[in-house]
Design a protein around this nucleic acid. Sequence first.
DNA 1: ATTTTGCATAACTATATAATTATGCATTGT
DNA 2: ACAATGCATAATTATATAGTTATGCAAAAT
Lengths: 313, 313
Amino acid sequence: MLDQRIKFRHLTCFLEVARQRSVVKAADTLSITQPAVSKTIRELEEHLDARLFDRSKRGVTLTDFGKVFLRYAGASVTALRQGVDSISQVRMQGGLSINLGVLPTVAASVMPNAIRRFKSLSPDTTVKVVAGPNVMLMGQLRVGELDLVVGRLAEPDQMSGLSFIHLYSEHISLVARPGHPLLTDENPDITRIREFTVLVPPKHAIIHPTVDKMLIAHGIGALPDRIETVSTSFGRAFTRETDAIWIISNGAVASDIAEGHLVELPIDTSDTFGPVGLTTRIDSPISPPVEMLINAVREEAALHHATHSGLNT
Amino acid sequence: MLDQRIKFRHLTCFLEVARQRSVVKAADTLSITQPAVSKTIRELEEHLDARLFDRSKRGVTLTDFGKVFLRYAGASVTALRQGVDSISQVRMQGGLSINLGVLPTVAASVMPNAIRRFKSLSPDTTVKVVAGPNVMLMGQLRVGELDLVVGRLAEPDQMSGLSFIHLYSEHISLVARPGHPLLTDENPDITRIREFTVLVPPKHAIIHPTVDKMLIAHGIGALPDRIETVSTSFGRAFTRETDAIWIISNGAVASDIAEGHLVELPIDTSDTFGPVGLTTRIDSPISPPVEMLINAVREEAALHHATHSGLNT
DNA sequence: ATTTTGCATAACTATATAATTATGCATTGT
DNA sequence: ACAATGCATAATTATATAGTTATGCAAAAT
């Protein structure tokens, strides 16, 4: 049971005294008299039924209780401050907004449903969806321009200061149009893809090194006829209309495969398995609306994974 | 500036009304009269200078402002509740404690200093350090027996419900005693390691699949003479005393290499690069003491990486 | 040996608080 | 049309609040 007599006044006073390690100094910055501070602290201690400070003649120091309570008290007033701030934000821009970076893997698979799910819970929050090269998105995330990036786990050197939440794993697929010449074989010779135009992810894409490794592992060197593309819509259209082969993360084409618009080449890509998830900043705490979006994405991903897992195993 | 007139009474009242969508019902569960609730809400609205509810004749509904404020208000009182709770916890068990899982990679490199750093900031928090097979540690983490696991990123299928914070990346090393026969060559034939006893990580180790891939990539099949071991102290002693070769994550033997007790075989292990970091539960929020420990580890890792990065590039 | 520093306590006071009861008023439902 | 519902407002009151000034007291500093 929370003691209703505890007020924010007590917490702010406590925090200030703890910070300054001095009743007098705290009183000064709070613009009240020293006895007022003494009394407020004593009240808080009585409400909590625990000593928060050890008093000495050259200042005060936190007790064990105080040290522990300090963090939570800080969190509590911070939350309220944020709440007050966010209200004025809403007033200004007419609604909260979340800035979301989306990588190709999930842009067409989980995210549409995830965002719909989120909007049904929180219809007044504007969600801004940004796509682009992952390096750019990660940069924006680190700077605070984005609140969240969804997609494959980026290269380690890009992940400093960021936190990753795993959703599911997927592999990379080689897809072609139905009726493609290579599909006639049961076990096609993978090196024959050199005979066709191959769409590959560009150098800055997360999956680029993985694709390279895979090609090398399968004994394929540099591809003679290659197109580098970021655009899944281009890749999709081009692959369906020509004999090109498209190397792309499975999630980006899962629905096309399911619907028969594209066909996966029967080639072992098990070592291209990689984690897909949510990337956030580690320092700034996750705001409640973003947390809701995260939950929506996780739920949707679980659902998605359950229905599509057959493709991945 | 936070309006000091806002009290927890206002927040709890607001939360209750929001939950019940009714002033009368909220008044009932709060055991006060309906006008008292009306007035409290009005006060809060005045302090925030924003309408939180739309009043109608069949209950009240949250405004946009209210919806936004709701989350933060909840977070604020939750934090205070936790604070009050944690005090009684401290009283009972005589000090907060953190349960920490440590994988071999960091057990001997970053963690000792990181924990020392943390203890200097927060000497009254007991840190319990647990080692063991990563599968077990991850299981304990998921159940809540551990608060944090530090080490290599686990396999994706173990990461559901967990969040990963990247610290740095490291590769896997092949080490042997100084003066080992293979070290005489400038560019030794890696397949010759078959001639020696090889210490490899056991099947459940995180790096096991990576090691396997590497061996295959270098054209080495199954090793004829192998010892599987979890124990770094055994591995260390055995490798120093015999001609055995030890395949182990670099972090576990970095100091031994630096001090010349062990020597790294000049073999390309660049594709064994993998992320090392902190794994936490995603659902339960990170408690302030754990957050402090996380920061300590991050700072120490940054330092560690800065001084040791020459080894990794 | 003083003086200063730092906190605690006491006595006091205007104001705010947190309820209460009583009443009003506009919908909703019958 | 009338009762019931649900919230708002007003008047009232005991109590808590949030400070203030004045004073005391022990440890540090000079």
